[in-house]
Design a protein around this nucleic acid. Sequence first.
DNA 1: TAATCGATCTTTTTT
DNA 2: AGATCGATTA
Length: 774
Amino acid sequence: MSPGENLPPYLEVLNQEQRRAVLHTGKPLLILAGAGSGKTRVITTKIAWLIRERGLAPQSILAVTFTNKAAREMADRAKAIDERAASAMLRTFHSFGAWFLRRNGSLAGLDSGFVIYDDDDMIALLASIMKGVPKSEVKRIAYNISRAKDYFLSPDDPALAIIDSSQQFRALYAEYEKRLANIGNVDFGDLIKKPVEILRAEPAVAQRFRERFSVIMVDEYQDANVAQFALLKELTGPDTYVCVVGDDDQSIYRFRGAEVKNILQFPEQFSGTDIIRLESNYRSIAPILNAASSVVNHNRGRLGKTLRAERGGGKQPVLAFLPDQDEEAKFCAELIANSTKDNNRPAQWSDWAILYRTNAQSLGFETEFLRRGIPYRVVGSLKFYEREEIKDALALLSFLVNPRDEVAFRRVVNKPTRGLGTVTVDRIIEASMVQGDSLFDTAKKMTGVLSAKAQKGMTEFLKVIESGKKILEHPPTQTATAKKKTRSKRQESSGKDEQELAAGEGLSVCVTQIIIDSGIADYHVQQDEIMGNQRLNNLQELINAASLYAGTIEGLLEFLEHIELDRSLEDNSLAGKSAETENAGDINKVTLITFHNTKGLEFRRVIMTGLEQGLFPREDKKGEELEEERRLFYVGATRAMDELYMSSCAVRRIFGRTMPVEPSVFLREIDKGSLKIVGKAPRGVGSAWTPGSPSGKLYGSSHGRLSRTESNAEQVSGWRRGQRLFHDDYGYGSVMDVRDSSEGPVVKVMFETGKEVQFLSEHQGSAFEKISDD
DNA sequence: TAATCGATCTTTTTT
DNA sequence: AGATCGATTA
């Protein structure tokens, strides 16, 4: 680009490499884009530029991402540059697959009314194949089947051995596929695998798609799996322009089949590939980028790149050593609460994100924030859809759409209790498989031969389904209040006109009616007496979400697909947010999020928590898996723009036991000089801890207990109840209890601070110093 | 067949 | 702490 040339403003703002990437044409392009280097801007600008300057039909552009959030952002930003980008196909891989299969699935014997099975459904189906097998084993097989599909391996593929070489696995996989085909549904893996199979088997279809899409772009390419690569290949014709964007340092989904080879070998797979590197980081200040880079530099298997921080100066990252996870929550809360006061810029709650390795860790922060009135949102926790009442309602709706769905049938046929146990249910499912009829028809025919009790129950269930069908055929007219309620819900941007919206509200009305008629609502209200009406609220939330869809079978199908593919509907139960305030209240809140979920996001201030051996990285990680954990650390750290904090606790509750833990190895990999350390580093001399008075009275002073005969655990461990002790982190305390466990004697200690800690005597006893109790 | 109890495991990350 | 599994009862 010559400097004198007049560029439109949307290109003017790009740096040289970004602009080169946008203006590139003709050959396959691999963009290696470091964290914060503006890759989304490049993709969205490229889309707009292709439409604007190259006169490309928006419909001929396909851009795929991995998350719904990324897909939405891509669409929004491209549209902001050029409205016409709205007609481009910007989707996740899976949603593209579903779209493809609704239209072309019949070529693989798939009815267009299929429902998408999630992992739980998959496990449930597999469990009915593997009767009497422990659930953990069923899960393992389900996991391996998913991986097999990620690697585009069918049950008869010799290469299946790379997943599981046993004949038994092959047979189970084959049987699972047979049952799933009989039901007529698909799982997540099928959304990629089946389209590839169709494109390979049907040259005419492949030809059609290659002509339709003249440009294909893939974001986060480092996370593509083998099947997704195959899909990309099949969609690419001789004239298709292919552009993929990725960063090998941010590959964090290997466990789910992502193949870094895809990005490393892209130039070989697509001959003549040009490579453009985006190495200017505009997001993080230099000290943060330095800390992040110093960690990921410890990885061996990487392309290697030099990311330059465009933003110098700023605060050094802070590493806090804290006693336990309650203190960690407190530390975060105070950090956040104080920052909102003393800042020249009016600090926002939404500046902050708290990152953790496992979803379970969010709870401690939620409790603390709730107590202090700090507004927060939990991103990406699937909790909402894991709730019994939601699963039940969805299963009922799924069965209405597909009366062959045995997983859904099993789940709802006896809810509420209708005297239909596993014996009856199995009988009907088997008969249906033999006769080839749907479960609904089979059940109808068989009612006569069932026991009196089962007969009555089955008749009731069939009535529920029949009336559900009727409701969808003739939607009840909605009441004025229902109309008002649904009106206030988030409205799809602009496309829907008055009439469509009105039709859409129909589904809420239908779903309400169906769920009430089925007795599921009542059933859960009764189950829920102690907890108030939370379950009913959750069902209401689900019903509200249905308001955007038509009150017909087709509308219901769309609704179910949307829910399976995008589970981002947040779980509001703890935050106590009402549906009405959702939009307005969502903006200014602290974000609680897993490391994995932060990909593609950025925050002014980030706290990375739980940086302890065993938790992050997990204990069992080594080799390539450890490198993936390290990349995950890198992803987290590079989310931070202005301030980065890290916390590591001395003890953590694991399996309900409080166990001492070591700081994460990753912390040692950061240059010492570039960190500010607060709190007492573990095993340090010169403790900053001020012990309480040793002569003060002890909690539950236990002279009486001392006179008791020693238990076996006491003899083995050498600890006795009432023994006084001192610990570097906790100060003085006394042993409250010594008991046996499967791992050996466990000692429970109550400290003068009121804190209770339990430890395994054989491993950790040395950290506690016995003191005499005169 | 349903519901409950206690013992005994288990704990990532997500479309 | 929570899920799961088997056994036991109404």
